[in-house]
Design a protein around this nucleic acid. Sequence first.
DNA 1: CGTAACCTTGACAGACTTCAAGGTACGTGG
DNA 2: CCACGTACCTTGAAGTCTGTCAAGGTTACG
Lengths: 247, 247
Amino acid sequence: MYNAVTDSFVDPQQKKSGCITCSFRELCLPVGLTDPEIEHLGNLIRHKFKVRRGEYLSHAGADFKSLYAVKNGFFKTCILKVDGHQQVTGFYMTGELLGLDAISPEKHTCDTIALVDSEVCEVPFKKLEEIGHSIPSLLRQFHKIMSREIVQDRNIMVLLGSMRAEERLAAFLLNLSTRLSRRGYSPTNFILRATREDIGSYLGLKLETVSRAFSKLQEEGLISVNIKHVTLRDIDKLNFRIGNSAE
Amino acid sequence: MYNAVTDSFVDPQQKKSGCITCSFRELCLPVGLTDPEIEHLGNLIRHKFKVRRGEYLSHAGADFKSLYAVKNGFFKTCILKVDGHQQVTGFYMTGELLGLDAISPEKHTCDTIALVDSEVCEVPFKKLEEIGHSIPSLLRQFHKIMSREIVQDRNIMVLLGSMRAEERLAAFLLNLSTRLSRRGYSPTNFILRATREDIGSYLGLKLETVSRAFSKLQEEGLISVNIKHVTLRDIDKLNFRIGNSAE
DNA sequence: CGTAACCTTGACAGACTTCAAGGTACGTGG
DNA sequence: CCACGTACCTTGAAGTCTGTCAAGGTTACG
């Protein structure tokens, strides 16, 4: 079956690598490491495993030992609120790094759940720091990844703080589009792995509002949507929509 | 004049230090560095300067070279949105570290503005990374600070995503309270340095709504408020209020 | 002392949520 | 292979919270 998030295309970068640390290339590649160095990393970060759809990769409150690089698949992270409801705090796809929030408290602060059958590489944090001491460029790259996480969260804060429902959804779809295209997938045609409820939780909306926003954007011709299959029809107008959110 | 954020009490930790890197203790102290090591750091991170109320510490778009540790004072960071309005993305007080968002893009992503006359220590990022290589515990501490920033942002995301106006304000006040008490200030009695508009922007509310929320919490006896002077009267009930936000 | 910035409160409007009903897709078991 | 059940999605109508607009009051600073 067609699946833009995991199966539709083969990630070219992963093809090249061909090693156990494929998704770890997110850290390695932009650093300009030599192949032996990557090999070195690969040996230290050996543990790789599958997480089936619906399974937990980590639980809130569990001790923190490792980060997880998504080799392939799609995850959501969510916080269990006092009232018993969950709130989704992020979505993670191939090549992204899970668990950065857990470094400080040394406990996982959220549940991490696979939305499709996925594979992750375990990255023992202590080892990462050790290696960092001998490969400064890797450390720098790690810092950039953490910083990028902060920037991403700030963007969501702006979204939650000042955008209306349709703008939020447009911003969310464009964000997915960018991240997918960076990985070699189609930027305009993809399958949502999250439910309307998950998306709503992430965007600070109720599932009905998300559904209505999808319908509205479709009416306006900016997207086509058929349940989980989304096509972006006019990226410029979608971008324009975000710029003109609630003043 | 009485000023809980900057002047009302003397931060005991800062008194002990007495060196140019005072606020850098946020990084140093929990690490258990020896005094000579701290001295070493102090020599590398020499540049310290004042920022007057209303002045910019950094502008969005400017090249990133340094982090800034707040020696004393109070800052807001804000993003200029496409529509020309600003959104406040964070408040920073004594001992906190500014500029973590800029590491990845190597540009500042937000404006940083002093809300009171303040002092900061400039921390050249390259030097910080260099020193990190020889003092692993310092590096670890730096990672924790970045991680804490992520956790803080996640908390705001949850707040923006699911709390009502009064809950948001209660959460904000309790957050300030915690951070102030950690620095030796009164947890129940403090001066807000931000305007209603700034607070509203941070909490995703309009200034009128913030004002009404203050009044409501006061009516209910949870706080006393006189413009910028706030007293928390019932911290337990304030906490309870957050737990019982929109289901 | 006067002006500008900031805060408070009211009335009304708008956006999102809530409640409800019905439809669609997917997977499991017969 | 089909039937059925569950989970998910869509749409409508009514209600609630926050935003908007407006007026007046207070504070701070030159």
